[in-house]
Design a protein around this nucleic acid. Structure first.
Lengths: 147, 147
DNA sequence: CAAAGCTGTAATATGATATATTACAGCTAT
DNA sequence: ATAGCTGTAATATATCATATTACAGCTTTG
């Protein structure tokens, strides 16, 4: 399995919103062109970023704006905003019907849940260390190096 | 998204193989009963564990055996064995067509790939710290506490 | 050694989820 | 007032996880 591309799409969008912030007509069609997906996907991803308080938008008007400085937006913020993993059950899909008439089946959850959370937590902590300022900086540097 | 339940199924199976190792008829039907999935799923998961060198099996004969002590089998070994995540592309699904005519689209991969690997790596390192001995120990303890 | 039990694996079906697409009401900008 | 745009619903399509049926061929048992 893989984490939905909504996550990398969201990072791409925020990077583009910053890079093209002084330009007119940065609408969902323009962004969709850069990302390579349908404009509706862009609008729904931006909608989730808005719900999470990461961007401000004005209905009917193009040009979403970042709600915080880039160095205060982490991969974790975006990952949570776009529902990258199942909120209720977590990163790991536990098989749903361990047999309660079997001692192992009855207790396997107890023995695993804490450890699965630790793994997920290790991943999320690493995501909190990475900010969009890092990505934007490297993107800009890569563009300058293109000559 | 979520990591396929093949992972927790595999941990459950290994735990059961250890717990019931002195018992007859620990075949795919028995294990499927404990895990709560179809016996064919059990056989294919065990097949992957065998390919990874974690268990020994004898075709036509029940009772798979662990190839290594429990404390030398980590979550990471199992996660790799059962193909929990896409081997080629990694944990994150990158949107597939960033526009190469856009400076951001051309360079977003360069700016993100290393960081996505770092996140995946943090998760995998944590998985290497957890062994099946831990899980089996806690499962046995939980069974004893059941009275 | 014959019968019964079991594995390994292929083929197919079903269900869930991600992404794409069409459509449009209603807001904004010119 | 017209054109542009967003937000969102509804629907379609593709992909993948899991379930299920089937069976050849190996192993164990009496």
């Amino acid at each position: 399995m893989q984490i939905t591309s909504r996550f990398t799409i969201a990072v791409h969008i925020i990077t583009a919103l910053d890079y093209f912030k002084d330009r007119d007509r940065v609408n969902s069609d323009f962004l969709a062109g850069s990302v390579g997906v349908n404009p509706v996907i862009v609008r729904t991803v931006i909608g989730k970023l808005r719900e999470a308080g990461l961007v401000h938008t004005l209905k009917g008007s193009s040009g979403a704006e970042l709600a915080r400085p880039l160095n205060e937006i982490t991969f974790y913020d975006i990952y949570k905003a776009v529902d990258s993993v199942n909120e209720d059950e977590g990163l790991f899909h536990f098989h749903e019907q361990p047999n309660t008439e079997c001692p192992v089946g009855r207790n396997i959850h107890k023995a695993m849940d804490g450890r699965l959370s630790a793994v997920q937590n290790a991943m999320e902590e690493e995501m909190k260390r990475i900010t969009l300022a890092d990505v934007v900086e490297d993107t800009r540097a890569a563009i300058l190096e293109e000559e």
